[in-house]
């Protein structure tokens, strides 16, 4: 359903539907202030009306956590309406995503290196906020102008802060995300930690195929070790090793 909407001091004009998923859909919109001046072009993610309260809660969590992350390598949320019949939020409009770039196969070694640094900075920031992303993969890395890449889709985000959980109750774990990027502890027991995001980052390096820098394989091996305690403890440590491997290209 394409719609025109007024929210607070803004007017939203829907131009087209640009994506569809299990959660709902994404629209290309124009945002205006009430005086009619155009603020810019954006994307709006809209939740399907038939999804139940649990999905509305998850959607609200996605918005809350993503909006609290203000970083150049994280897709920013500008506006939201969580009380609407179909909750929505407005974010930057991307030119494409990393998966599409990889499929086209035109990225140079230096471009790939820069992209990885941007993703790592984004994920390190997410961890510094006490969150886990839990769904790091190429199509959740969006491309913007000036070749800036940003981490997006906080649909599976988790707060690591135990205080955020009101009481320690028995609960049931479940594996979420995309199988290829899932660490063994996620597949077997639905156990998430910073090391599960680090595992996914290791596979994402592999996707970029940096064979020109053989040292990169050591970083992949360490970040995708079977035992979480054998992986990097922090994304910053992994980035440090990755930078050394990239600089030592050909060695």
């Amino acid at each position: 359903m394409l719609m025109e909407d007024v929210h607070g001091n803004y007017k939203i004009k829907v131009l087209s539907k640009i994506g569809q998923g299990g959660f709902g859909y994404v629209e290309h919109i124009e945002l205006f202030n009430l005086a009619g001046h155009k603020c810019g072009n954006y994307a709006r993610k809209v939740l399907s009306p038939e999804l139940n309260d649990e999905f509305r809660r998850r959607f609200a969590r996605e918005v809350t956590y993503q909006a609290s992350c203000v970083h150049n390598n994280i897709v920013h949320i500008y506006l939201c309406n969580l009380r609407a019949e179909q909750p929505w939020f407005v974010m930057n409009l991307a030119e494409g995503d990393l998966l599409k770039d990889l499929e086209e196969g035109n990225l140079s070694f230096n471009e790939k290196s820069d992209i990885l640094r941007m993703i790592f900075n984004g994920v390190a920031y997410i961890h510094s906020r006490g969150f886990l992303h839990r769904d790091i993969k190429p199509n959740n890395v969006l491309k913007f102008n000036k070749n800036t890449y940003k981490v997006s889709d906080f649909g599976l985000v988790k707060n690591l802060d135990k205080d955020a959980e009101s009481e320690v109750l028995t609960k049931i774990a479940s594996a979420m995300g995309t199988t290829r990027y899932m660490a063994p502890e996620v597949l077997y027991a639905g156990d998430y930690s910073k090391q599960t995001d680090i595992f996914a980052l290791g596979l994402l390096i592999e996707d970029l195929n940096l064979a020109e820098a053989p040292g990169v394989q050591r970083v992949i091996d360490k970040s995708t070790a079977r035992r979480p305690l054998d992986r990097y403890a922090e994304v910053s440590e992994m980035l440090k090793d990755l930078n050394l491997a990239l600089e030592g290209k050909g060695k």
Partner: peptide, 14 residues
């Protein structure tokens, strides 16, 4: 953490 986390139980969606 995780001592109180099950990976299976009797439930509609598990």
């Amino acid at each position: 953490s995780g001592k109180n986390t099950l990976f299976t139980a009797l439930s509609k969606n598990i």
